[in-house]
Design a protein around this nucleic acid. Structure first.
Length: 530
RNA sequence: GGCCCCGUCGUCUAGUCAGGCUCAGGACUCCGGACUUUCGCUCCGGCAACAGGGGUUCGAAUCCCCUCGGGGUCACCA
């Protein structure tokens, strides 16, 4: 058996599409599972832009998910070059050979002529097959046209008397009637190749054994098969995997429909999280990543294992119950016969859930480094190297525990970093916990306790509050909630005693002082922030 | 419109090729409850699906036919 070789061939578009990433992942998994070779080939045929710049985010996404490529940009390989823009000679030679063998022909129809022929076919409600007018030209005429510089494209002459059949590795037998296929252009007037042709030439030259790609390419397949046959290539095995759909739909996930996705119930939380976080870390402008891009998940602080895990489950399953899988498990189990045929909607809820799992698996040191980075970029801390800061954040993370779902969640706890005078109080929390009869008195009394207690640690503070409550004949809830709101501005958060310890006596007392004023202000006062 | 693909809980899916083990299993979401100072976590419990219709068969989510629905693609884009 020939060796397993798969490829992914992205266009340098400046970002990595999450759906494309899933397809790339399947190619990578298949190669790794079989001990084969994974090739990265860059489809930069008709790009004017700076390829290097537009390719960088794509390679970054591969690196982030640790999908290494055996041949391709940066690493090279024996069957390069791996940029299609550098493979023009190969396409030219192949086209010339087909021309000399009479399998392709020069078509002198102008674009306008082609278009009107197409319109006419449409009007008559018959399938459009092209004119083949140029096929009737005698060789001398063709020579003369070429000599006089008349523009032409090269078309493949589809053998219309047959059907094309593939045995697709995920969809089974698929058949087309070649009699319905118009002659495709394989080379433009300027000699540059078209996608279907370049792909066929490259897949064969790079000895790709399995063409694993999204279903949207299924309709390109008969042309490619015919081209392979004309060129005398052995056919690769095709595997058309479902495309990744927008959450809860069957529609292909598309960057052009972002506005629509904002209102998608499942997608919404991802957009809202981005709205909260990105502006604070300087990514809220033009370069703001969106959930269709792999970069979004990286920037928001997801773990690559989680995205890897979630992507692998989009259209593939290990069995009837396993959801959480390490990359080793997935590589070990990945086969094409367990890929489903129907479109797989991206499932943000599932991704978030998986992320929670993989975050818990991460080590405290890494959590600390990543969170320090977010805090620093948001301007909440100055020096990430300072020992005191690091200790403080480490303690906060310890207190946060599993509340940290993605790294950027640490920004939700900014009350531990802002100046006491700038602490923002949640309006609802103030109304519910501070503006109640008796609260001001209890708060003031407990403040005095805090001011005089010896050690200001969580355990001691808890004991203090409990005994104080007993003496006052109050219930714990009557004081703990007001204190929480008074010192954090919020009604929910980490364990309150840990919070008090983290803040320290001075800051706690100052904040309670502020809160006491809020207790007294009338209902309609503007003193409390949102 | 032509061609092609797909159609199991709200979502991701198992089961479909080799019909009975399935009045359909898991996970996520959601809803209850327990625990907790709040949130979260965890633990219990619950709602919830074979697109429809005909066949074949003792028996069909699984095989056949039709219908309906959804999607992809129809370039001198990739």
């Amino acid at each position: 058996m020939t060796s397993i070789r798969t490829r992914f061939a992205p266009s340098p578009t400046g970002y990595m599409h999450i759906g494309g990433m899933r397809t790339a992942l399947f190619n990578w998994l298949f190669a790794r599972h079989h001990g084969g070779t994974f090739v990265l080939r860059i489809d930069d045929t008709d790009r004017q832009r700076n390829v290097e710049e537009a390719l960088a985010p794509i390679l970054d996404a591969f690196r982030w998910l640790e999908l290494d490529w055996d041949e391709g940009p940066e690493v090279g390989g024996d069957l390069g070059p791996y940029f299609q823009s550098q493979r023009d000679d190969l396409y030219r030679v192949a086209a010339e050979r087909l021309l000399s063998e009479g399998r392709v022909y020069r078509c002198f129809d102008t674009p306008e002529e082609v278009q009107s022929a197409r319109a006419e076919a449409e009007a008559r409600q018959v399938p459009f097959l092209g004119t083949r007018r140029s096929l009737e030209l005698d060789p001398e005429t063709v020579e003369a046209y070429v000599a006089e510089g008349r523009p032409f494209v090269v078309r493949f002459q589809v053998p219309r008397d047959q059907s094309v059949v593939i045995e697709d590795a995920v969809r089974g037998r698929v058949e087309w009637d070649a009699g319905l296929i118009p002659d495709p252009v394989i080379q433009r007037g300027d000699g540059s190749p078209l996608y279907n042709f370049a792909t066929v030439v490259d897949d064969a030259a790079m000895r790709i054994s399995h063409v694993i790609r999204a279903e949207e390419h299924l309709s390109n397949t008969p042309v490619q098969v015919l081209l392979h046959q004309a060129l005398g290539h052995e056919l690769p095995i095709f595997a058309h995997v479902p495309y990744v759909a927008a959450p809860g739909t069957q529609e292909k996930l598309s960057k052009r429909k972002l506005d629509k996705y904002r209102n998608n119930p499942q997608f919404r939380r991802l957009f809202e999280a981005a709205d909260r976080v990105l502006p604070r870390i300087g990514r809220g402008g033009e370069d703001r990543p969106d959930p269709v891009m792999v970069e979004y998940y990286q920037v928001m602080g997801y773990r690559p294992e989680a995205v890897f895990n979630a992507l692998s489950r989009l259209g593939w399953s290990l069995d009837d119950k396993t959801e959480v899988m390490s990359r080793e498990t997935i590589v070990g189990a990945f086969t094409l016969d367990r890929v489903v045929k129907s479109p797989a909607g991206l499932d943000p809820d599932k991704l978030v859930s998986l992320q929670g799992h993989w975050m818990n698996e991460s080590c405290p040191d890494e959590r600390l480094e990543r969170c320090l980075d977010y805090l620093s970029r948001a301007g909440l801390i100055e020096d990430v190297a300072e020992a005191e800061t690091r200790g403080f954040v480490a303690a906060l993370l310890e207190a946060m525990g599993e509340r940290l779902k993605v790294y950027s969640d640490v920004l939700d706890y900014d009350e531990f970093f802002v100046d006491d005078a700038e602490l923002v109080y949640d309006t609802k929390a103030v109304k519910k916990r501070l503006r109640k009869d008796g609260v001001a008195g209890w708060l003031a009394a407990f403040r005095d306790e805090l001011a005089s207690v010896e050690s200001f640690d969580a355990t001691g503070l808890e004991e203090l509050m409990k005994s104080w409550v007993e003496r006052q004949e109050l219930k714990l809830g009557q004081i703990i909630h007001p204190v929480r709101v008074a010192v954090t501005g919020k009604s929910a958060g980490i364990g309150m005693f840990e919070g008090l310890e983290l803040l320290g006596r001075e800051r706690v007392l100052r904040r309670i002082e502020r809160a006491l004023k809020l207790c007294e202000t009338p209902e309609d006062d503007q003193g409390a922030g949102q």
